[in-house]
């Protein structure tokens, strides 16, 4: 599903590599944590996967295609197969939970009938069935992240990428969100989570890729943050 070979990334104005010589493979249906301190390169990997950035050297294949060579007009179609969850939620705050989730379906060309059936169902899955028509700005942080999750899964993507999804949430809510991500993974989607939340990583015992200064320093199945570290 994701295959990185000698992957390097250097930002324009930076002296050092943000990612250096990364080689790893992620299979369909896996749940993977990318862990490491701030600036280790976790978010950079995720950005490369959705082609928000292009690698400086090496190759990164997502769904079997080299994303760096993907023509610009094909990018939307790559992104429709990847559900994104962000630390800062990135929701349209003045719009309702329903509108935010429906939007991800509208851009794919889903019919109105399909949208009106699927969106309430997905909002129900994340526990927001009663807040369909509440504006996002009137929801709590945890609820907003649930809307973000609903938006990420509404098109049944093959892969979910979550960049610090619990970064702005309290421990209890963080656990709820991660439990939701695990249930999404159990339904067949590949889930990649960038985090430095030690407690969450240790609790879920999934595959952990550990990054330090842009280098991959550990790759452990059923890993624990502390062990890898």
């Amino acid at each position: 599903m994701v295959e990185a070979k000698n992957l390097c990334m250097k930002y324009d104005k930076s002296e050092r590599f943000a990612l250096e010589n990364l080689t790893f493979q992620i299979d369909r249906g896996e749940f993977v944590f990318f862990v490491g301190s701030s600036g280790a390169g976790k978010s950079t990997i995720l950005k490369l996967m959705i082609r928000e950035l292009k690698p400086t050297e090496g190759t990164l294949k997502v769904f079997g295609r080299n994303v760096a060579r993907l023509p610009r007009h094909r990018l939307p179609y790559l992104r429709r197969n990847i559900g994104m969850v962000f630390q800062d939620f990135r929701l349209m705050e003045e719009r309702t939970a329903y509108d935010n989730v429906a939007f991800a379906m509208i851009v794919t060309g889903a019919s109105r009938k399909e949208i009106s059936k699927r969106v309430p169902h997905v909002l129900g899955l994340v526990g927001l069935h009663e807040k369909n028509m509440t504006r996002v700005c009137d929801l709590s942080g945890g609820e907003q992240q649930r809307v973000g999750l609903a938006r990420a899964i509404v098109n049944r993507p093959a892969m979910i990428i979550a960049d610090e999804p619990t970064g702005n949430l309290d421990p209890g809510t963080s656990l709820d969100i991660m439990t939701l991500l695990r249930s999404i993974n159990l339904r067949g989607s590949t889930v990649l989570v960038a985090t430095h939340n030690r407690e969450i990583v240790d609790r879920f015992k999934k595959r952990v890729l550990y990054l330090e200064n842009g280098k991959l320093v550990g790759d452990e199945q059923k890993g624990i943050y502390t062990h890898v570290h």
């Binding site: 959705i50 007009h73 179609y77 429709r80 990135r90 939007f103 851009v107 938006r151």
Partner: peptide, 16 residues
């Protein structure tokens, strides 16, 4: 700007 970037992340085409 934020709204536009969200649209891009969920796979909206530029013309859309």
């Amino acid at each position: 700007q934020k709204e536009i970037s969200i649209m891009k992340y969920v796979g909206a085409t530029n013309w859309f």
